[in-house]
Structure formats: structure tokens, C-alpha cells
Design a protein around this nucleic acid. Structure first.
Length: 144
DNA sequence: GCCAACGTTGGC
DNA sequence: GCCAACGTTGGC
């Protein structure tokens, strides 16, 4: 079970949009490193939804519905896409400010490489004190 | 609105 | 294949 973070500009597609849709396919990722990460995603993995722009925070949790598929939006046929479903909204968003303020995450891609849109989440963050107790209990209750 | 960081493009 | 120029992203 791996953990990931996907970025999206909420004015393009917000976590609320995902909540409404139930699931969506994460297409249009072309960056080489982001694609490398995306290829390693597996069905059942959990993913943080990180909202860029004004929010700059992890706002929700998603679950991967299936292994990577060829990206239908990619004409070259070399890129993959992943379908995710909404799990729940975080009771308290984890802000970029809070993540940057914690020395444990200074090496993390989210901090080091602002433009990377798909990346692994260190276990220390997934379940760290940055996530509210209510959210940790909720994660525990659904078996993760 | 600005700019740093980074990726991509195209001329050589 | 190199690298300068340019475009884009995303935080400030």
C-alpha cells in the first residue's frame, strides 16, 4: 500500500467536483518524473488531493480504482492515467505552510520541487501530527 | 503581478 | 547533441 499526492488547481477541478462525480481519471500528466511516479501507482493506493493556487493545502483523500491505463488524452500513447475515487474530505486541510514548517519534510518533493504534480507521500506525513486526530481516526476506521 | 525554477523547443 | 530562448507552473 503506497501513498501519493496528486496536485490540481481547484479552479480547474476541485475536490468538491470529485465528491460530486464520485470518481475521475487523472489525465494529462506529461512531466517525466510525474509519469514515473504515476506508473508506480497501484489499485487500492491512497492519494492526497493537493489544491494549488489560493488554497495550497492537502484537502482530501482519494483511493486508486485501478492500475494505470494508457492516458486517453495522450496522442503519443506513452503516458499513463489513473482513475481515482473520492474517499473523504479532510476535517482540517494540511497547508503547505505547515508542511514547510516541519523539518521532517524539507526533503520532500512538494517542498523542493514546486512544479512536480505527482509524488510519493512519506509515511511520516501520512498519519503525522499534521493530520488532525479526527482525520487519523477516520483513516483508521476505514482500515488504512 | 512578479519571478524563480524548470521543462521544452528549435537552431546550429 | 548542445544550449539559448522561450513558455509554463506555482508560490510569494
Amino acid at each position: 500500500m503506497a501513498h501519493w499526492l496528486f496536485k490540481e488547481e481547484p479552479e480547474s477541478y476541485s475536490f468538491a467536483d470529485l465528491g460530486r462525480d464520485g470518481s475521475t481519471t487523472w489525465t494529462g500528466v506529461t512531466n517525466t518524473l510525474a509519469q514515473k511516479h504515476l506508473r508506480a501507482v497501484k489499485k487500492g493506493d491512497l492519494v492526497f488531493f493537493y489544491a494549488t493556487g489560493k488554497l495550497k493545502a492537502v484537502v482530501g483523500v482519494m483511493e486508486v480504482s485501478g492500475d494505470p491505463i494508457p492516458d486517453p488524452a495522450d496522442a503519443t500513447g506513452k503516458c499513463v492515467a489513473v482513475t481515482v475515487q473520492a474517499v473523504r474530505k479532510l476535517a482540517s486541510p494540511v497547508t503547505l505552510t505547515a508542511i514547510k514548517a516541519d523539518p521532517a519534510f524539507v526533503e520532500w518533493e512538494l517542498v523542493r520541487q514546486a512544479r512536480l504534480s505527482v509524488m510519493p507521500v512519506p509515511d511520516e506525513l501520512w498519519g503525522s501530527c499534521l493530520i488532525s486526530e479526527a482525520d487519523i481516526l477516520s483513516l483508521g476506521r476505514i482500515g488504512y
